[in-house]
């Protein structure tokens, strides 16, 4: 697996550009990646920014170091994604994160022996310096988690599930549910063999977003928030994932706290999974709480 050293490259690029700027006396020096995440306030609204949209260009870049999850078993004992780069946008209702990291293999399939790449954004449900435990919150002090998975994105893009999406040459003689004549009966019969769906597990539902809105009060307590509203978009180019997670700052039905407002200071934490290393669940790289400033400056340019 190839991981490019992001920060040294950026530093070298910065020095090079600074030298050229000194010679020409005109070029603007890009700001080095900060350690804090500053969400650029977009007066006209964040909208639905995709990876690579111009709106991201003026957002400050933050480099966030990732640590192996080594607090609860099973731990991540081998290496994972060492760092991610984050930009953020906000308006009065939403916050969008653009998270980028190097990964030489885009793992989008989620089948028996294959795990998908994934990233999660963790926010405290209230502003201020008294944050819950950064490792998925603690009893009585939950955190909200917005979880993007490459397989969710793939399912969303490809539509209804088919075995041939991941195994193009596979053939199946017959599914019993196909014997039904009308669609309603087919779905009813199909549910008999789709127990996750029959049990009401939201993870099995027909996907309308590549992001799950979740709540946790410590390891092993992750569950779905009552309203699923976040969205996500992604691209994988030049050995790099670029994922956008768009979430509301506050949702009245979300328990745990009032949410956040533009202009407030809070914190954000991240987790990232490398599917080709069979990482899932607690086998992940995670960050500590990173300071998050909402709406630091105005953006008036094109989106």
């Amino acid at each position: 697996m190839l991981y490019r050293p992001i920060i040294p490259c950026m530093t070298f690029a910065g020095i090079l550009i600074a030298a050229l700027a000194g010679c020409s006396g005109g070029a603007k020096k890009p700001a080095p990646a900060a350690k804090n995440v500053v969400a650029l306030y977009v007066k006209s609204g964040v909208g639905e920014p995709k990876p690579g949209d111009k709106v991201w260009q003026q957002a400050p870049l933050a480099a966030v170091a990732m640590l192996p999850q080594d607090l609860t078993d099973p731990k991540l004992m081998d290496s994972g994604i060492p760092s991610i780069h984050v930009k953020a946008l906000c308006d009065d209702k939403n916050i969008a994160f653009n998270i980028e990291w190097y990964d030489s293999t885009p793992d989008t399939a989620e089948v028996e022996g294959k795990f998908p790449d994934a990233v999660a954004v963790q926010l405290p449900p209230a502003p201020g310096g008294e944050t819950p435990d950064p490792t998925m919150g603690q009893a009585g002090r939950p955190v909200h988690i917005h979880f993007w998975k490459a397989s969710y994105q793939q399912n969303l893009d490809r539509g209804e599930w088919s075995l041939r999406q991941n195994f193009p040459n596979a053939s199946v003689d017959h599914y019993p549910s196909d014997a039904a004549t009308d669609q309603a009966d087919k779905e009813k019969l199909s549910e008999q063999f789709t127990t996750g769906l029959a049990a009401g597990n939201p993870i099995t539902r027909k996907r309308t977003s590549s992001v799950d809105d979740l709540i946790a009060e410590g390891f092993g307590t992750l569950s779905f928030l009552p309203m699923q509203v976040s969205k996500g978009w992604s691209s994988w180019r030049n050995l790099k994932w670029s994922v956008v997670v768009l979430s509301p700052l506050a949702v009245a039905d979300w328990p745990g706290g009032p949410g956040l407002k533009a202009g407030q200071n809070s914190f954000v934490a991240f987790a990232v999974w490398d599917g080709s290393r069979k990482q899932a669940g607690s086998r992940k790289m995670r960050s500590v709480w990173t300071p998050l400033a909402l709406g630091a400056s105005d953006y008036t340019g094109q989106r």
């Binding site: 795990f115 996750g196 049990a199 009401g200 597990n201 993870i203 992750l222 569950s223 899932a280 669940g281």
Partner: peptide, 13 residues
């Protein structure tokens, strides 16, 4: 396996 609470981490597998 509780079909409602499983998240497919596959630790059981």
């Amino acid at each position: 396996i509780d079909q409602k609470n499983c998240r497919g981490y596959r630790e059981c597998v």
